[in-house]
Write a protein that binds this DNA or RNA. Structure first.
Length: 302
DNA sequence: AGCCAGGCAGAGA
DNA sequence: TCTCTGCATGGC
């Protein structure tokens, strides 16, 4: 990926320009995969690999500003899924009307490749929480237990997502104080397991899907749905298909004529119907229905 | 004011 | 194997 690098006197960091054809940064960063990105005018600000970034998309140009000299140049490219061949991926979707409609609306949406620990911990916090609330909890957790990160501006400071080892040293009460309720016990237990290397998250991508999923589900507070989020959003398992309440309803409405379907049958369906890029299909469906819901007042929805 | 949120675990049938 | 319930908290 060719990148023009230039000094940026305002931030004493640097700016990079990446090519981002067939890419939708807004959809990608606002589709419930990651919880720390926040809008800053036309741009998005967040932290990847311990480095602060400000991202702005202008057409097929993706401008990335950092506060310090750039980390390895492909860090961001990997994270943002810029190298995914979206045309080939979408060509592998089953040609059904719901997916066509989702692609027509959200084309350019990508799967992120997040840090596995941050992804796992964030989704442990996600159960029966709205996305806005997950964001709040994660921010509090970072403010209190993350490591300082350079950001532009005098006296400003950012925080990394706290490591498993750091959170393993927290008491359940300290975690509860971050407003995460009953999830505190799970987060603490998961942090202790991961800090002890059981499972070793970086070893999971080399395993078969079922095996990696089983390793994640063995963690307290991690079931099929959260495991699939981690498999899909951080470990590169593109067949993983997280089914949350939204996707459940959408699948029943769009593929089963509104009838309620047993969880078992639904998983058999998603496994067989959506093919090798099932995870991408899932994310298109999820983002699509969430955008539609956003435009309709709650009172009009079912 | 009440319903529900990118669920999971344990109990009981 | 399936269904039901408790769990903390806050947006809408």
């Amino acid at each position: 990926m060719p990148a023009a690098v230039s000094a940026n006197p305002r931030t004493s960091g640097v700016s990079t320009v990446l090519r981002a054809a067939d890419y939708d940064l807004d959809a990608t960063l606002d589709s419930g995969q990651a919880f720390r990105w926040r809008r800053a005018g036309e741009a998005w600000e967040g932290i990847v690999g311990g480095h602060w970034f400000r991202l702005r998309q202008v057409g097929t140009r993706l401008e990335a500003e950092t506060a310090t000299p750039l980390p390895a140049s492909d860090t961001l490219t990997q994270y943002l899924g810029l190298n995914d061949d979206l045309t080939a991926i979408i060509a592998r979707f089953p040609p059904d009307p719901p997916l066509r409609s989702a692609v027509a609306t959200c084309r350019g949406l990508r799967l992120l490749r997040q840090d596995p620990w941050e992804c796992l911990a964030s989704f442990v916090l996600s159960s029966t929480k709205q996305i806005v609330q997950i964001r709040q909890i994660v921010e509090t957790l970072c403010d209190r237990y993350g490591e300082p990160v350079c950001v532009p501006g005098p006296g400003a400071i950012g925080r990394s997502f706290p490591s498993a080892a750091r959170l393993a040293r927290c008491t359940e009460l300290e975690l509860r104080d971050c407003r995460m309720g009953f999830r505190a016990r799970y987060l603490r237990a998961v942090a202790m397991r991961v800090a002890a290397g059981d499972p070793c998250l970086t070893a999971l991508p080399g395993m078969p899907l079922e095996e990696a999923r089983a390793a994640l589900v063995s963690l307290p507070g991690v079931g099929r749905k959260i495991a699939d989020c981690v498999l899909l959003f951080s470990l590169g398992f593109r067949r993983a298909f997280p089914v949350d309440v939204w996707v459940m309803r959408a699948l029943q409405d769009l593929y089963f004529g509104g009838r309620t379907i047993a969880q078992r049958r639904l998983l058999e369906f998603t496994d067989s119907h959506f093919g090798p890029e099932a995870g991408y299909a899932q994310q298109y469906l999820f983002h699509h229905i969430r955008m539609e819901a956003g435009r309709v007042p709650r009172s009009v929805r079912r």
